[in-house]
Design a protein around this nucleic acid. Structure first.
Length: 442
RNA sequence: CGGGGUGUAGCGCAGUCUGGUAGCGCAUCUGCUUUGGGAGCAGAGGGUCGCGGGUUCAAAUCCUGCCGCCCCGACCA
């Protein structure tokens, strides 16, 4: 992409409403625009990141055996009356009326709807286990939206729902998501720690929140420091290996880790001094097992092997990709801007032509742009007629992992400069070497 | 929902107390000079001062009603 023809409305100054760093940087880097309290438009750069995050989430869900579908944002009130949540949910649910004065709502979550879909088709235990998920916009009319997309009213959520014949099966489904979540967050360069959680208004009795540590996090967390060095389950993990998966989950839940709501001072005191860690964290995922809470009242039943009909055991599993992006920025930035982990970066490489109009820098830039693009790299080519300082600032702000600086100075020696955004390391290389370096692995 | 703020050009702000018909910096456009960490000079464009009502010869400014947005606390992917 040529920057001169892209839509990247970066801001030099910080809008005054932005309090936390991720919100400031997302606004400044032209990723989002606020349209109302807690409601944001995703501009091209923000959307690119969102799509990358979604792709990773999707890959790991699929790997674990979950199946994607797509449910609507608008739901019928009647559906929610079946579970009793229409009245229970309160003012956080946005209630609307259509032209026939039918009562509708903008979905804050989809347990009811997925249960309705399930009961419409599934009759036998032989069709279990089943895990269906979608990535869809949600609306929760928060009393006080804040911190940009970290706590917005409209937000994107990946929500998965598992169906099993009994509790043992449901626990295995839960463990699959547990492992999938560990992998998902690790792939985005995050250290996410599963913490035993309160089940909240969704109900149930087995639940973990996945928390990433960041000084600006909203919740206070306490955990054993060894979690930071734990090895992430590999890509070839066998998700059908019941005991193997249980072993992984047991290992990841053996040490102390809790949010302030679930904090147990005595248990925390038992953690060795040098391993006791209290910090702030951001919740980026939440998984629940809630048994027959919805299947029972809504009649989602299957025939068991014994010829007995029984309500299915369910769980639900959420990740907020929009919040996740803010969390990644909270965890990875410096005073100049965002530092994207390569897996979710909006572009792989930025080419900075430091002297547009100079035949040498133009030719080298164009050639590099062409070759990297042909090799499948996503390149942002700063071909604007701007001064070098502005280009450095822009590239650092939007946080592209690799920058290639092409100016007359180094080009005189037949070299360009390859800069790593995260470390700041620079290296003088020929154009050919830059191409082979940046296309070496993918 | 309680408490505190705020609304003037795309962004950041001054002007409001003391009424006289709107200004600064950045950004934008034109020209020239510049070109390795956000340049200089010269010129130009851009605002129903959040919305409605009122007071007044005259309202960004005073009175009044409403709305939007932000921050702090109790709740949440």
């Amino acid at each position: 992409m040529r920057l001169s023809r892209y839509f990247l409305p970066i801001l030099r100054e910080t809008p005054k409403e932005a309090e936390i760093v991720s919100h400031r940087l997302m606004l400044r880097a032209g990723m989002i625009r606020q349209e109302a309290a807690g409601i944001y438009a995703w501009l091209p750069l923000g959307l690119k990141v969102l799509n990358k995050v979604n792709a990773i989430v999707r890959e790991e869900q699929n790997r674990s055996g979950a199946i994607e579908l797509l449910m609507p944002t608008i739901q019928s009130a009647d559906l929610w009356r079946e579970s009793g949540r229409y009245d229970a949910y309160g003012k956080e649910m946005l209630r609307i009326q259509d032209r026939h004065e039918r009562e509708m709502l903008f979905g804050p979550t989809n347990e009811e709807m997925i249960t309705e879909i399930f009961r419409g088709y599934v009759r036998s235990y032989k069709d279990l286990p089943l895990n269906l998920y979608h990535i869809q916009w949600k609306f929760r009319d928060e009393v006080r939206p804040r911190f940009g997309v970290m706590r917005s009213r409209e937000f994107l959520m990946k929500d998965a729902y598992s169906f099993d014949l009994d509790q043992a099966g449901a626990v295995h489904s839960y463990n699959k998501m547990f492992v999938a979540y560990l992998r998902t967050f690790a792939r985005m360069g995050l250290k996410a720690i599963p913490m035993r959680a309160d089940t909240g208004p969704i109900g149930g009795n087995l639940s973990h929140e996945f928390i990433i540590l960041a000084s600006t996090g909203e919740s206070e967390v306490f955990c054993h420091a060894d979690y930071l060095d734990y090895e992430i389950p590999p890509a070839d993990t066998d998700f059908d290996d019941i005991s193997g998966l249980q072993g992984t989950v047991d290992k990841w839940t053996a040490l102390y880790a809790a949010t302030s709501e679930m904090h147990d001072t005595a248990a925390f005191d038992a953690v060795p001094d040098d391993k006791r860690m209290s910090a702030r964290g951001i919740e980026v995922g939440h998984i629940f097992y809630f048994g027959t809470k919805y299947s029972e009242p809504m009649g989602a039943k299957v025939m068991g092997p014994d010829g007995q009909e029984r309500p299915v055991h369910m769980g639900s599993y959420g990740i907020g990709p929009s919040r996740l992006i803010a969390a990644i920025i909270e965890a990875s930035h410096d005073e100049n801007g965002i530092i994207w982990p390569e897996a979710v970066a909006p572009f792989d490489v930025a080419i900075l032509n430091l002297k547009v109009g100079d035949s040498g820098t133009d030719a080298a830039s164009e050639r590099l742009y062409r070759e990297l693009s042909a090799a499948g790299r996503d390149v942002l080519y700063d071909d604007r007629d701007e001064r070098p300082g502005g280009k450095f600032a822009t590239a650092d702000l939007v946080g592209v992992p690799w920058q290639v600086l092409i100016g007359p100075k180094s080009l005189a020696e037949g070299k360009v400069e390859l800069k790593n955004r995260a470390t700041g390391e620079r290296e003088l290389l020929s154009v050919d070497d830059v191409v082979s370096r940046l296309t070496a692995h993918k």
